[in-house]
Design a protein around this nucleic acid. Structure first.
Lengths: 255, 255
DNA sequence: CAGTGGTCTAGACCACCAT
DNA sequence: TGGTGGTCTAGACCACTGG
């Protein structure tokens, strides 16, 4: 037992890189490389701890990262095992929708077509789950465009509080949660979004400059405050020929 | 300092429920209730630890759960603060697409329209990044239907290994990763999916029983093995009037 | 400088599983 | 029963932040 660090030069306890992270990367590599195959068990936490002369808590920290990454699962009393990646889940993030355009440095801009105060109609009373008549709402219509091409069209509604005037500055960030925070007393804390495909209406086609009935993404969003009360609602139409969603699943490398 | 547990009966150190989980729920409740508002700081880890007479490591475990939930963020040297929920991210999970139909107990079924061995054409050689001529592929065409209505149409390709015959049993699980695992030596470990909207072709319209050019979801999937080599490819068309994706964001309750 | 969160230790007891 | 992972402790040192 006097042999120290043979071919496996792995853990440097004096490195600025945390030990748990070094161990995480080491185990991750063994799994990716196939040294540890799906279904096989990892060494026990105690074995790893004594082997590398580190604390078991540190080993657990490393393993919990693997668990979070979905590469490994632990079973109390039995052991920790390499997972078999399930590739039947899809996770689309809407980052793609606007951040892609945003981050790729295109000179995109948001244009305010209309902003006004309206009275509640039946549809709004239903969306916001209110009974009162004559309740007032803020109504926005905006268009997102890039490189002189219109990409999406959105209508937004939020409850109107006359104490908070509409400021020009909001045109910089016309996000629905931002508008709610600025114009109402409500604090937006959660949202529900529904994505569908549709054929665009003639009005939408005219606004976006695409043929009528062209396929589009349609995203309806409802914003809720902490009491689960609806405090904002929007409907956005995205050109089907300019947007797509990409999803990566499994043990893709993120180095 | 002899007062123990006044109105705040919070942590029961003898409970079967882990202390870190009790503390997590306690802090989560204070944030949801608004006792702690976005931007405000939590008590320091040491304060919480001494206040409830528990170890700081246990406090950190509770807080790390809050961080993972996106309700709180920590800044070294400064403190831990309640996050402002960003509601501009969307995470759509494809569970909706087939699991909804699956779980709601409809008598859905997958029908194999065709399965055959084909030679590589230019498109396949490109998708699979191979140069060889005459490489053979397995080709599947399937339809998913429920309640006697066809819902989606999918074509799948995977590299053919003659050593592994096509078994009837695979028709039960015709997922692309499953087919790859069954018919090839490759181990599928990651996948990329791209979701777009489109107008369906006349052929797809005929298969699905919808009007030509009706809007549809289109999902292209590529499966990779551990060397990032493409080992499977599929293209699925989902009826736009029967599918939608739903996303929840922010501090929705999951109790 | 004092206070914060980030990492780490060397133990401990427990619930669970297999034998 | 012995071995596994799950929880917890009471310290410790560090890096970073602010005054």
């Amino acid at each position: 037992m006097f042999l120290v660090s043979r071919e496996e030069i792995a853990i440097d306890k004096n490195s600025v890189i945390p030990i748990y992270y070094q161990l995480f990367k080491l185990l991750e590599g063994q799994i990716r490389r196939g040294d540890l195959k799906p279904g096989e068990s990892l060494p026990t936490e105690n074995d790893i701890a004594t082997c590398y002369e580190i604390s078991r808590m540190t080993v657990r920290r490393a393993i919990s990262e693997l668990v979070a990454a979905g590469m490994v699962y632990a079973q109390q009393g039995k052991g920790t095992f390499v997972a078999t990646p399930k590739l039947d889940n899809i996770v689309f993030e809407l980052n793609d929708f606007n951040q892609e355009i945003n981050q790729r440095g295109l000179n995109y801009k948001t244009t305010l077509l209309e902003a006004k105060i309206i009275r509640a109609n039946e549809e709004l009373k239903s969306k916001f789950q209110i009974q009162e008549e004559n309740k007032r709402f803020l109504f926005f219509r905006t268009v997102l465009s890039a490189e002189n091409e219109r990409l999406s069209y959105e209508v937004k509604y939020t409850i109107y509080s006359k104490s908070k005037p509409i400021l020009e500055s909001e045109l910089k960030d016309p996000s629905l949660p931002g508008l709610i925070a600025a114009h109402t007393e409500y604090v937006p804390v959660s949202s529900k979004k529904v994505l569908q495909v549709a054929s665009c209406s003639q009005e939408e086609a005219a606004i976006l400059g695409i043929p009528p009935y062209a396929p589009v993404f349609l995203i309806e969003q409802t914003i809720f405050d902490s009491d689960l009360k609806p405090v904002g609602w929007s409907k956005a139409v995205y050109r089907g020929d300019r947007y797509k969603l990409t999803s990566y699943d499994g043990w893709y490398k993120k180095d």
